Amino acid sequence: MSVDGTEPGPSPRTVLTASAGRAFGAIPPTALVLLGIVSVQLGSAVAKQLFGAVGSFGTVSLRLFFAAVVLLLFWRPSLRMGRRTWAVVVCYGVTLGLMNLCFYLALARIPLGVAVTTEFLGPLVVALAGSRRWLDALWALLAAGGVVLLMEGRGDLNLAGFLFALAAGTCWGLYILVGAALGRHTAEGGGLALGMAVAALVAVPFGVADSGTALVQPWVLIAGLGVALLSSVIPYSLDLEALRKVPPRVFGILMSLEPAMAALIGLVVLQESLRWSQWLAVLCVVAASAGATRGTREDG
């Protein structure tokens, strides 16, 4: 109760969350996941258009800065946490920051579809790690075949970009593991908001050093906000709502479509055409990820 004895009204955040929940509730969970995937890849396409003005470091710093601001304003997390919880938040944020820096460095050098397909190997390794099923060995071989196809005739594929994408995939695998710990140590979206702030602290110095005052041009700031919304805020919200309605296994299978969607958006938005072998590589990784995810068992 409030100090005057009346019941307090709902907070703006509660009202906004309820309104968003009702809006999302009318959309099938499969569509939510697909919309999230499209949003992320459109955000990457918009980000690539910014590279000419502020570079990859400047673009990723804008994305993480604005995403942190939006999430902090929305969740308003408490800073009163134990040392262990803070350690998890910092690890999560550093991993998130490095993952984005590496991915955007890759994106500046290789096509969007190739970058996302290569990066997707990180979650796939996590999904296959520790498995003793013979079928998972087949999925691993299929993914390895995809990598070979990506590198076929690599004279026109920037090796540094490919290695940056691999580094981003490694960070993505770590991000999944640290993200699970973050979920155990924090409630709602407070941990995500603080972790995003840490990621921004990691990336922004690189962006400022590389781009300087170019970052504060009005159109650059607006584009950076758009990238943050498309690549972070909107897809995270859609994924959270979808996970309330479908099992994680089904969610993982749907997420396996991300490399293919990246290749399509790269083709349509950025006019980045892939060779037939690279399209086949994308399909190999999609199939391997979907197969590995479908094979998981949710034991009680």
Rank of each mutant, 00 (worst) to 15 (best):
N100Q: 13
N100I: 10
N100C: 11
L101P: 06
C102F: 15
C102S: 14
C102Y: 14
C102L: 14
Y104I: 07
Y104C: 00
Y104P: 09
Y104A: 08
A106R: 07
L107N: 06
A108S: 15
A108D: 15
R109M: 11
R109K: 15
R109L: 14
I110W: 01
P111I: 10
P111E: 02
L112G: 02
V114K: 02
V114F: 06
A115V: 08
V116G: 07
T117P: 06
T118H: 03
T118C: 05
E119Q: 15
F120P: 04
F120N: 09
L121N: 01
G122E: 02
G122P: 06
G122V: 07
P123N: 09
P123T: 10
V125L: 15
V126L: 11
V126F: 11
A127C: 03
A127P: 03
A129Y: 15
A129C: 08
G130V: 07
G130N: 01
G130L: 09
S131M: 05
R132V: 12
R132Q: 13
R132T: 14
R132S: 14
R133N: 06
W134K: 12
W134P: 03
W134N: 10
W134E: 05
L135P: 00
D136G: 02
D136Q: 06
D136S: 03
D136W: 04
